[in-house]
Computed example of a mutant assay.
Amino acid sequence: MSKYLFILIFALFAGISSLAADAYDIKQMLNRGESVEVGSEFDTYDIKSFIDIGHERVTVRTVGFDTYDSRIFVERGARIITGKPYDTYDIRSLIDRAKVKSYVTVIGKGFDSYDLRSFADKGASIIYDQDDLDAYDVRQILDRGGSITVGKKFDTYDIKTFIDKGHERVTVDTDGFDSYDTRTFIERGARVIVGRPFDSYDIKRFIEKASMKSYVSVRADGFDSYDLRQFSEKGAIIIH
């Protein structure tokens, strides 16, 4: 089964923590100046209320929402992660309506290369299916100014070469990499998605080493509310 990994912000299929945040918790986080990623575990009303507080600090996974709702989210200033079953026209419309075009991230699966290029030309970020790419393909995407999220399919050496070429346009899903490799990726300027089995100490060190603290996105699952509060206060994005 293909893995779809995502940038800025971001792991698409991270689960809700056993200590799952409710709408009140999310609003508290946003009122403290923190950033969140949410999806259809919340209803449209709640998501709109989050956006009205946090604006671009809120990223919405649009799976489970209709195009009308997604247009409202981008018009209110949120970032979104979107893709099929929306069609090409829907995606272009969302990009056109976004306050900042790069606030729209498109999962590439199901779209042809022409469509993906048109989305990128409009300013959206594209999540490519890394299973369809080799290291040469990734370098070509980066040479064209694109963004990419990669994971354990590629070895540490390849990922370091990607980062040296694309810097913050490369997001690394660190599942399967050790803490040393992850620190190396961060120190070279990449964005990272981290979580268990790293412990709280590891996560805090990653955030501290990042040139931009928001380049570190943390999957909430497996951490208690105290740890998550510390991560977010340090500037990381929490994925609920």
Rank of each mutant, 00 (worst) to 15 (best):
Lys3Cys: 03
Leu5Trp: 12
Ile7His: 03
Ile7Arg: 04
Leu12Met: 02
Ala14Ile: 05
Ser18His: 11
Ser18Thr: 08
Asp22Cys: 13
Ala23Met: 04
Ile26Tyr: 08
Lys27Tyr: 02
Lys27Asp: 00
Gln28Met: 05
Asn31Met: 14
Arg32Ile: 00
Gly33Ala: 07
Gly39Ser: 14
Thr44Ile: 10
Tyr45Thr: 15
Lys48Tyr: 00
Ser49Lys: 12
Ile51Thr: 08
Gly54Lys: 08
Gly54Tyr: 10
Gly54Thr: 10
Glu56Cys: 02
Val58Arg: 10
Val60Glu: 01
Arg61Gly: 02
Thr62Met: 13
Val63Pro: 02
Phe65Cys: 09
Phe65Tyr: 15
Asp66Asn: 15
Asp69Phe: 12
Asp69Gly: 06
Phe73Val: 02
Arg79Val: 01
Gly83Ser: 12
Gly83Trp: 13
Tyr86Met: 00
Ser93Tyr: 05
Leu94Tyr: 05
Asp96Glu: 11
Arg97Leu: 15
Val100Ala: 08
Lys101Glu: 09
Val104Tyr: 02
Ile107Gln: 12
Gly108Val: 06
Gly110Pro: 10
Phe119Glu: 03
Phe119Ala: 08
Gln130Phe: 07
Leu133Trp: 09
Val138Ile: 15
Arg139Ala: 06
Leu142Lys: 02
Arg144Asn: 08
Gly146Lys: 10
Gly151Cys: 03
Lys152Tyr: 03
Phe154His: 04
Tyr157Cys: 09
Phe162Arg: 03
Lys165Asp: 03
Lys165Gln: 15
Val172Gln: 05
Val172Pro: 04
Thr174Ser: 10
Gly176Phe: 14
Ser179Val: 04
Tyr180Leu: 09
Glu187Lys: 15
Arg188Tyr: 12
Arg188Glu: 11
Ala190Met: 04
Ala190Asp: 09
Val194Leu: 03
Pro197Lys: 04
Phe198Leu: 07
Ser200Tyr: 00
Tyr201Gln: 03
Tyr201Ser: 09
Lys204Gln: 12
Phe206Ile: 11
Ile207Arg: 01
Glu208Gly: 00
Ser211Lys: 14
Lys213Pro: 00
Ser214Thr: 09
Leu228Val: 13
Arg229Asn: 12
Ile239Cys: 13
Ile239Thr: 15
